[in-house]
Simulated assay, not measured.
Amino acid sequence: MKLWKTALRFLPLSLVVLFLAGCMGETNLTALDPQGPQAEWLFDNMLLSLYVMAFVSIVVFAIFFIILARFRRKPGDDELPKQVHGNTALEITWTVIPIILLTILAVPTITGTFMLADVEPDPEVEEETVTITVTGHQFWWQFDYEDGFTAGNDVYIPVGEKVIFELHASDVMHSFWVPALGGKVDTIPGITNHLWLEASEPGVYKGKCAELCGASHALMDFKVIALERDDYDAWVEGMMEADAEPDTDDILVQQGYELFGADGLGCIGCHAVGGSGTAAGPTLTNFGDRTTIANFLENNDENLEEWIRNPKALKQGNDMPEFPDVTDEEMEALIAYLRSLSVRELDE
C-alpha cells in the first residue's frame, strides 16, 4: 500500500515533466528529436543506456518479488532457509552479467567519443569546410567567419556538411548547446574548445547557453540556421558585401542611418554593420532578417523601441546603454534604418 501511495504522490510531477517535454519539442529545443549525426548518436546511446537500465531493473525487481512471495516467513517457520553463501556459480553469474552490460555500453561510448572529438575537416566534401569562431558574451553570442565578417546571435551553416566551431568566452564561462544537433561544450575565458555540428535538413535550430553565466543566463539564446549550399553561399556573399550606408532614397531610412552613426546616437560604436563599426555588441548587418531582438524578444517595432529606450529593464545585466530621450520621430527613423538591414529573405 505504501508503494502505491508513493507512486501516486509522484504522478503529478511526472505529468508536469511530460508536458514540459512536449513543449520543448514544439520549440525545437530538445535532444529527443535529433536532426544531425552527432545528435542521432547521442540519442541512440541514450536509448541503449535506458534499455540496459530497464533490463536490469526488470530482472532485479522480478527476483525481489519472487523472493518476497516464495521465502516470506510463514507461521511455524522456526529454522533459517538454506544459505547459499559461497556459491561459486551464483557469484560468477552476478559478476559476469554486469561486465557484459558495461561492455555493451562501453564499446559504442568509446567509439562515439572519438567520433565527436574529430574536428578535422571532412575529406569527402568538395566544398571547403566551414569554420566559425564562437565567442560567448554576457549575454549574447558572436560568430566570426573565416570569410572575414561577423554575425551576432544567428549563425548560418550549410546543410549536410560538417561545420567546425572554435569556442571562446570573453568574460565568464558559458556553454554552447544546440540540442537538436549535438551535445554541449563549454566556452571558457583563455581556453579554446572545439565542436563540430551537422544539420541533416534545412531549418532553424534553437540553441542555449547551458552554463549559469549571470543574471540573464536564461535569455542567452541563439539560432543555428541551416541552408542549402547555394543559399548559404548567397548569404555569405550578402554579408560580405553589406554596407552600413543604406542603398535607398528613403528619407526616413537615411535619417535613421545618421542617428545610428557616430554623429548621432553613436550606435555604430558598439554595433557593427557590414565593415563599419566595432563588435562590442551584437553585429547588426542582417538585423532585418532576424526574428528576435536580444535573442528572446519578438522582432517587432514595439519591442524594438522598448529595447532601445530601456534595455536593462528587459534583460538584466546587459551592457547596452539606455536611450530614454530619443524623440518619437527619431525612434521611427532609427527603426526604419534597422529594418532595412537585410541580406536575404528568410522563411521560417
Rank of each mutant, 00 (worst) to 15 (best):
L8I: 00
L18S: 15
T327W: 02
D231W: 05
A242G: 09
G182W: 03
T109P: 15
L50C: 10
E305S: 09
D247S: 12
G214Q: 10
A272W: 00
R309K: 10
G22C: 12
W235D: 01
V119A: 11
R290N: 11
V172C: 13
D230Y: 06
L284V: 09
D328Y: 07
D77V: 00
R309A: 04
E198F: 09
W235A: 04
A169N: 02
P123R: 08
L346C: 07
I104T: 05
I58H: 01
G274A: 10
K184E: 10
A336R: 00
S342D: 08
F222D: 00
P121D: 11
L101H: 02
I268M: 05
T129V: 02
D78I: 08
D347Y: 08
Q83F: 06
V59E: 01
N303D: 11
T6Q: 12
H174M: 09
D243C: 10
L3E: 12
D144L: 03
A180G: 08
K206G: 04
K82I: 08
P81A: 11
W94L: 11
I191E: 11
Q138N: 15
M46D: 10
H174Y: 15
D233Y: 14
S276P: 08
I97P: 07
P123N: 05
V107E: 03
L314F: 05
L50K: 09
A69L: 07
V343M: 05
A69M: 14
G160F: 14
G148Q: 00
L116N: 07
A54R: 10
G317C: 13
P189N: 14
A294M: 10
V134N: 00
F176Y: 02
L219Y: 15
A89P: 10
I92Q: 09
L80Q: 14
A54L: 12
S216Y: 01
V253W: 00
A117G: 10
W4A: 11
I335L: 05
D247R: 11
L101F: 02
V56Q: 14
G274C: 07
L3C: 08
W196G: 05
A69D: 07
T129I: 06
M1S: 15
Y156E: 03
D347Q: 13
I251W: 02
R70S: 08
F176V: 02
V172W: 08
D221H: 06
W307Y: 15
V159W: 09
G203I: 01
